[in-house]
Design a protein around this nucleic acid. Structure first.
Length: 801
DNA sequence: AAAAAAT
């Protein structure tokens, strides 16, 4: 039975009939598993199964499924619009859905008839095609994010019954019943200092006190500031914020040093690089009790057998936290942004700054390097985008003043001028999304942006660069490509932003990113943002940043929020059917798969089960990627099956269920994927499916993510799959309000010691796990994707006023 | 394994 947790009427209007996808008719041929009499969830037709699905023929026969172009005459005129350019943007919104065929039909039916001309995917015939209609775009939702802060979850932890040791008494938690080495963690705990009996997560109380008072005494605080002069003269900035009116002035109190002539920053210090391994140094400065507990970047208790090398929990960067309440009453103007920009932000729906924005904007405007951490959907794009634009303006103005003939008061679009700001993102979708936010801001002051990412013809990008662009937003590959071709001059880049910075430091990304950064103007300002920013960015920080300011929003970490986490222990062979059962509901569902192939497989399976779904992964061409993502955003389809390409940065604000068909390998991945839901203060749910042999690994991962979940044994056919019940959020608002914590991380030696304990058998066991383990975890900020062409057009003109 | 260039 469909768990219509949400009344149909409460959902955003969509341009298709939900009943189409969720056929209310009687079921057709039994679907694999859930519909067969042998299963618990089985219901005879007489019961008027609410969850019955329509077979392809039934859908077609019912007339609900337009499977021919002629079934939707309104599309007729669109077929030839391919080359039409004028008015395209406005058109986008009223454009009628192009095709609503489902996969089955596409695959089974005879050669396309007249409908073919509506099919844009002539190239790849089969399944990913066509469902591309892009409905209305939502200017305002984009990228804003719930300042929500929602319920700072971590504070409740103290109130809650401690989990591990004690929970065990009540009911065997995860290894329940299977006797799979339940005991192990017990003694592990005793060994490790941090645990000394106090479960890691719960000892927050212990740490709490240190917050307000200890800070000052704390030795070596910020990772990167260490050894250098405290930039605040010792007084951590964050306290100022708490105590005084949240105003931008405080930033001015600080040493003026950064205002130094636009961009000429002190040379970086060579010797920084020679410092002792940061991790050791850092550790030395902390007490054991402080070291382990953490919220966002928890240390790991044990080293799971299969955890990849890179899932080491790194130290959480020491950050200056801004209290969420501190931004009340503060305006973007107060933060130092100009009127035009403030207006543009208002048009984007951002009337008031979110905490992370209030924290970083003034600092960015000072010209400082910044490391910003704000959980997914906390408004990071504006946090770096707006001040980047403002600063470019300031730099420009200063330059004008310096000119012999003084300011002429007008900026001109110099043809071929080299861009002065660069924003790097790990995926094309994210780059697009960022541009959708930054472009209007830049445009408001007469600056130009352009996207430079792969998968699309480069001619347009090159053309834009030739005409002159101020801000380049893109992905590493194409940026390097164009640079080598001589189309993109990075030497004038004053400001470089790395979104999802920690990810950009992962293998495969780091080197290209380094090469790119080295091409930018020496001494240029660098901004690194991510919801999971940690010392993994140290390599870049060491080489490219100078005394970076580190900011975060107190109490807002990825694990806080309005998300109900569930973990189902299942039989691997039932995975697809279970995903289908879970996805058969109203509301947007995002399914994560570890591999592209499985994402495809799952998508097919869902479609076969009568659940409309589209895929998103790197095997699809860019137009299809864009289209499929938009299908979810627009509501044309409720289920998107993606690889981790969608894990970060993408934002679709009304996804209320994230299914991790494959558990992630990294805790960060879990957090990012989970962060696709529960946004804007809404409730969200994340269901992770794991085979029995993965329990331990999952447990470890959750520990690191600091998420508490009781595993549930679930079998195909269980009623639970049809109705997960109301979302239960463990988090409770604490009277303490937001809090900031500083964590120390883990250390290599400990990891090694723990590695010995890791059980090899688990590794062996995990071999039979399907190759699909991930999901995505960021935000599908797909508010609405414009075509590459549209995007370019958008960036087009507006010539300097 | 995925992503990121194009071939």
């Amino acid at each position: 039975m469909p768990k219509n947790t949400k009344p149909a009427g409460g959902r955003p209007a969509r341009n298709f009939d939900p009943s189409y996808a969720r056929g209310a008719a009687k079921s057709g041929a039994p679907k694999s598993g859930s519909r067969s009499p042998g299963h618990r969830g089985y219901r005879p037709d007489e019961d008027a199964p609410k969850k019955a699905r329509w077979s392809r023929d039934e859908r077609v026969a019912s007339g609900r499924t337009p499977h021919r172009a002629d079934a939707r005459p309104e599309h007729g005129s669109r077929g030839e619009q391919g080359g039409r350019d004028g008015g395209r943007r406005s058109d986008r919104d009223d454009r009628a859905p192009r095709r609503e065929f489902d996969r089955d039909r596409d695959r089974d039916r005879a050669p396309r008839d007249g409908g073919r001309r509506f099919d844009r995917n002539d190239r790849a015939p089969r399944r990913f095609d066509d469902r591309g209609e892009r409905p209305a775009r939502r200017e305002f939702d984009r990228d804003r994010t719930p300042r929500d802060g929602g319920a700072p979850r971590r504070f409740d932890r103290d109130d809650r019954a401690p989990r591990r040791d004690f929970d065990r008494d009540r009911a065997p938690r995860r290894f329940d019943d299977r006797g799979e080495r339940p005991a192990r963690r017990e003694f592990d705990r005793d060994r490790t200092p941090r645990d000394g009996g106090a479960p890691r997560r719960f000892d927050r109380d212990d740490r709490a006190p240190r917050r307000d008072f200890d800070r000052g005494e704390r030795p070596a605080r910020r990772e990167f500031d260490r050894d250098r002069t405290p930039r605040d003269g010792g007084a951590p900035r964050r306290f100022d914020r708490d105590d005084r009116a949240p105003r931008r002035d405080f930033d001015r109190d600080r040493a003026p040093r950064r205002f130094d002539d636009r961009g000429e920053r002190p040379a970086r210090r060579e010797f920084d690089r020679d410092r002792a391994p940061r991790r050791d140094v850092e550790r030395a400065g902390f007490r054991d009790s402080e070291r382990r507990p953490s919220s966002f970047y928890p240390a790991r208790d044990e080293r799971p057998a299969f955890t990849p090398e890179d899932d080491v929990v790194l130290e959480r960067l020491e950050a200056d936290a801004i209290q969420a309440e501190a931004v009340d009453g503060v305006s973007f103007g107060d933060l130092g942004l100009g009127q035009n920009i403030v207006r543009a932000l208002g048009d984007l729906g951002a009337e008031h700054p979110f905490p992370i924005q209030a924290a970083t904007i003034p600092v960015v405007l000072e010209g400082r390097d910044v490391l910003g951490r704000g959980r997914t959907g906390s408004g990071k794009t504006i946090a770096f985008g707006a001040p980047t634009v403002e600063r470019l303006m300031q730099l420009w103005a200063a330059k004008q003043r310096d000119l012999p003939n003084g300011p002429d008061g007008r900026r001109k679009r110099e043809m071929g001028r080299a861009p002065r700001a660069l924003i790097l993102a790990p995926t094309r979708e994210l780059a697009l999304q960022i541009d959708r936010t930054v472009q209007p801001i830049a445009q408001a002051v007469g600056l130009f942006t352009t996207q430079v990412y792969g998968g699309v013809p480069q001619a347009r990008q090159v053309g834009a660069l030739r005409r002159g662009v101020d801000i380049v937003i893109g992905t590493p590959g194409r940026i390097e490509d164009l640079e080598r071709q001589g189309h993109l001059d990075l030497s004038a880049i004053e400001i470089t932003v790395l979104d999802e910075a920690d990810h950009m430091c992962d293998l495969g990304f780091l080197e290209p990113v380094q090469r790119i950064l080295r091409l930018t103007k020496p001494g240029g300002q660098k901004l690194l943002f991510s919801a999971t920013l940690d010392t993994g960015v140290a390599t870049l920080v060491d080489e490219f940043l100078v005394e970076p300011a580190v900011h975060e929003v107190a109490g807002e970490d990825q694990s806080s929020g309005t998300i109900d986490h569930r973990v189902f222990v299942i039989e691997n062979r039932d995975k697809r059917d279970i995903v289908a059962a879970l996805a058969d509901r109203d509301g947007k569902t995002l399914v994560f798969s570890r591999t592209r192939a499985f994402a495809e497989d799952l998508t097919d399976h869902l479609e076969e089960a009568g659940i409309r779904a589209v895929a998103l992964h790197g095997d699809l061409n860019q137009s299809r990627r864009t289209r499929n993502l938009h299908q979810l955003t627009s509501g044309r389809v409720d289920v998107l099956v993606a690889t981790d390409v969608a894990a970060r940065g993408i934002h679709v604000d009304d996804i209320d269920l994230v299914i991790q068909a494959d558990a992630p390998d990294e805790y960060k991945t879990y957090l990012h994927r989970a962060g696709r839901t529960g946004r804007a203060g809404r409730m969200g749910r994340v269901v992770t499916l794991i085979p029995r042999n993965r329990q331990r690994r999952m447990n470890d991962l959750l520990d690191r993510a600091e998420i508490e979940v009781d595993f549930e044994d679930v079998r195909l056919g269980d009623a639970l799959l049809d109705d997960l019940g109301p979302v239960e959020i463990a988090a409770i608002e604490s009277e303490e309000g937001f809090e900031t914590e500083h964590y120390e991380a883990d250390v290599a030696e400990e990891l090694e010691a723990e590695a010995d304990e890791a059980e090899a058998d688990e590794e062996l066991a995990s071999d039979d796990e399907l190759a699909s383990d991930d999901a995505f975890d960021d935000e599908l900020v797909v508010v609405d994707l414009l075509d590459a062409d549209d995007e370019a057009d958008a960036a087009e003109p507006v010539d300097a006023r």
